[in-house]
Design a protein around this nucleic acid. Structure first.
Lengths: 189, 189
DNA sequence: TATCAAAACTAACGATTGTTAGTTAGCTTA
DNA sequence: TAAGCTAACTAACAATCGTTAGTTTTGATA
């Protein structure tokens, strides 16, 4: 069941609207207007407003899970793994910043797909946490509070969508280096 | 025009609902139910749904602006100022985590008060940025990308509401130290 | 050119939205 | 007790919501 071009347009335009106004405030008539059609016509391509949100969010969540699996099973140092997590977020976010905004702000409206989303999200966080705790145990990173480090890195990486659209491609190339420096090395001299 | 007790109850309960479902998905009948009254009765205390959101968000934004003004005009080192910003966020957020959640996710629905909100937010960010740039110039902190540091710290501090409600008072006492360590000192050995 | 499916349309549905108008119950004070 | 205010109520409104049914247009293929 490959997603048709027109359906993907609806998903992409909806992500922009969900980012700007939030899922509940966006009407099917809003989506239809930016698509240049009437609301009823949308139903030739999608089966509900819910489906649009689910397709946006779950495909992103699955990308994160797949990326994290690769990182976890790799033979790298803790610092390298943390850098790869940063790169993973930059890549997925820069490919679809509107979708990331929709995910961050509207996941609670997933309804029947909410449990599956929680599975993916919790699994991702557990892997992230395990990398940190393992790194502290092996003395590869300093002995900070693991929950605080996890929270801080996740907060920043999850907010990248606010920031990446403003950067041009040249600046995105340096972003992972700048972010690694700030997130991992700190600012104290 | 002091805010009556009943009105403050409505504001507090609304903040919880706005956090859980977002402003648009919360109905006046939802708010009335948790208040134990009918929707029409709410209008004896507030003049619109919009007013509830404005009162939640703008009082918080004004607290941040006032706190930042104190920090900016103080005679402290850059590192001390950054630590005080962390403490400011922890204090305001722990006093009203539901309000902070409402602010972060629902500011775009402020409508006629949106411009005022932007004024406060932009002024806050400008002061924050100035502290960082000044600190780099004076060699008090390391020479990182100032925008990346600003973005990273703000992302983490603005997400504190997700995290603080889970911590008991004992753990909140250590939070500013743990956060300062992670945000300012990094994890590289 | 005739056919047929995909994709647009019009019209309408029942439900729900924020809000208003008018009424009643409960308290405090004279 | 009577008066008056506060805060609750019932009932209803116009508007808008997601969605469905049925119809017409479009564009490719035979």
């Amino acid at each position: 069941m490959k997603t048709s071009l027109r359906k993907q347009e609806i998903i992409n335009k909806s992500a922009i609207l969900f980012k700007e106004k939030g899922y509940s405030a966006v009407t099917m008539r809003d989506i239809a207007t930016v698509m240049g059609m009437k609301a009823a016509s949308l139903y030739n391509h999608i089966k509900s407003k819910q489906e649009i949100l689910s397709l946006i969010i779950l495909s992103l969540a699955e990308q994160f899970t797949a990326g994290m699996d690769t990182i976890v099973t790799s033979e790298k140092t803790t610092l390298e793994k943390l850098q790869e997590i940063i790169i993973l977020h930059i890549q997925i976010t820069s490919n679809n910043p509107n979708g990331m905004a929709s995910l961050n702000a509207n996941w609670m409206h997933l309804e029947e797909k909410l449990d599956y989303y929680f599975e993916l999200r919790d699994g991702y966080e557990d892997s992230f946490r395990a990398i940190i705790i393992d790194g502290i145990k092996k003395n590869e990173i300093s002995d900070v509070n693991p929950e605080v480090l996890l929270f801080s890195m996740l907060s920043t990486l999850r907010s990248l969508y606010l920031w990446i659209p403003k950067k041009d491609d040249v600046n995105i190339k340096n972003l992972d280096a700048d972010l690694s420096k700030v997130l991992l090395e700190g600012v104290v001299l």
